[in-house]
Write a protein that binds this DNA or RNA. Structure first.
Length: 391
DNA sequence: AATTCGTGGTA
DNA sequence: TTACCAAGAAT
């Protein structure tokens, strides 16, 4: 993989987040055995001395390690710890998880985000029972066939739980390797990704591949950080091309993100006796499979009449908007979310609707056990607070 | 291949 | 307050 001789600089869209004169040259002659060893050994030794005491590093149970890897996808360590411990108590084995109702699994995931992870985890557990006798398969290749296992998670579980020399590249590893080997290109660039995986594959060969992979990630998380990296404490700075060239701050370039789109939902707060009406969303899309106060998308500036029509269509029965109870705003990565809560009434209480998987009349206590997004939980808190104040 | 999936932490 | 983004996968 010799580097391209002279690719001209390419105009980049948007504002370069890190001021950088980046070319599109990818890298980098294949590193030799000596260079690899000069990175591998110090990183592994550094890891042994400096690794954080994380709960999933105290177990060798592949199921528990798998669970940690799924929860950690795009999610910070401090957020995951309490979820991991709670979830593992509730679903201690793959068999227990496979046997549990999906609603219980989603409830255990409540607030963690990216809920497809929970549904894929559940499906994968069922596959593990039906195809592998309840035990996780031990190779990255086999793991890749399970729902929710991509290249990263397969490599992580194979190396950490089973000792396979399987590489992994996450955001940390991409940053560390980009700096060490001066790998150019924006996140998502095919050639860049291929180069990073190739480098990770060369480095992981050797003793303790799982610990080595974790050393790369730990180094990225604590020392080779995105901003203000601690190069003076870096165990491999002598071999780091970006450090040598003074380019640490500009590698890797930040990902270009689309501006969040506005999404306004009208929520029906329909009370009957001591219950409210709840609905389960479709499995695909935003908050897939989760419960909510029945929601209909409306224009940002929708009139009461338009909103009434939308909610009537969603619930499949006529409703009347009684009052606006409140508004909840949430920032998601790709959505600027506004929830408008309307107290509604109607002549006929629905029990099913084509727009939802399921409708259910629940007390607040029952609703607390349902899988629900944080946004919807906030909305619900608003309603319950409003009701309490009204008494 | 580019989008779409949540949430919370940090500077 | 805004921007960035954290142990990615699915479509």
């Amino acid at each position: 993989m010799a580097s391209t001789p002279s690719t001209p600089p390419e105009a980049r869209r948007g504002r370069p987040p890190r001021t950088a004169a980046t070319s599109t040259r990818v890298p980098t002659a294949t590193p030799g055995a000596a260079q690899l060893a000069s990175i591998r050994a110090p990183l592994l030794a550094w890891y042994d001395r400096n690794k954080r005491d994380l709960p999933w590093r105290r177990t060798k149970d592949p199921y528990a390690i798998w669970l940690s890897e799924v929860m950690l996808q795009q999610t910070q360590v401090s957020t995951v710890i309490p979820y991991w411990e709670r979830f593992l108590k509730r679903f201690p084995t793959a068999l227990a998880l496979a046997s549990a109702p999906l609603d219980d699994v989603l409830a255990g995931w409540k607030g963690l985000g990216y809920y497809t992870r929970a549904r894929n985890l559940h499906r994968a557990a069922q596959d593990i029972v039906s195809r592998f006798g309840g035990t996780l398969p031990s190779t990255a290749e086999q793991l890749l066939s399970l729902p929710g296992f991509g290249r990263y998670t397969a490599g992580a579980v194979a190396s950490i739980a089973f000792g396979e020399e399987a590489p992994l590249v996450d955001g940390n590893v991409a940053r560390v390797l980009s700096r060490l080997f001066e790998v150019e290109g924006l996140p998502g660039d095919r050639e860049r990704e291929a180069t990073l995986w190739e480098l990770a594959g060369l480095l992981v060969k050797g003793e303790r591949p799982g610990d080595f992979n974790q050393s790369l990630m730990e180094h990225g998380a604590t020392t080779c950080r995105p901003e203000n990296p601690l190069c003076l404490l870096c165990p491999v700075r002598e071999g780091c091309v970006a450090f040598k060239k003074g380019r640490v701050a500009e590698l890797p370039p930040a990902k270009v993100r689309a501006a969040p789109k506005k999404l306004t939902l009208a929520l029906a707060v329909w009370a009957h006796a001591d219950t409210l009406l709840f609905a389960r969303r479709a499995d695909s899309g935003l908050f897939g499979g989760l419960w909510e106060l029945p929601a209909a998308e409306v224009d940002e500036d929708a009139t009461v009449e338009e909103t009434t029509l939308r909610l009537t269509a969603a619930l499949g029965t006529g409703v009347k908007l009684e009052s606006l109870l409140g508004t909840v705003k949430r920032q998601l990565t790709h959505r600027d979310l506004t929830l408008r809560l309307y107290r509604v009434s109607g002549p006929k209480r629905p029990t099913h609707s084509a727009a939802f998987q399921e409708l259910r009349w629940c007390t607040p206590a029952e609703a607390a056990t349902l899988g629900m997004s944080t946004a919807m939980q906030r909305a619900l808190d608003t309603v319950v607070g409003t009701q309490a104040e009204g008494r």
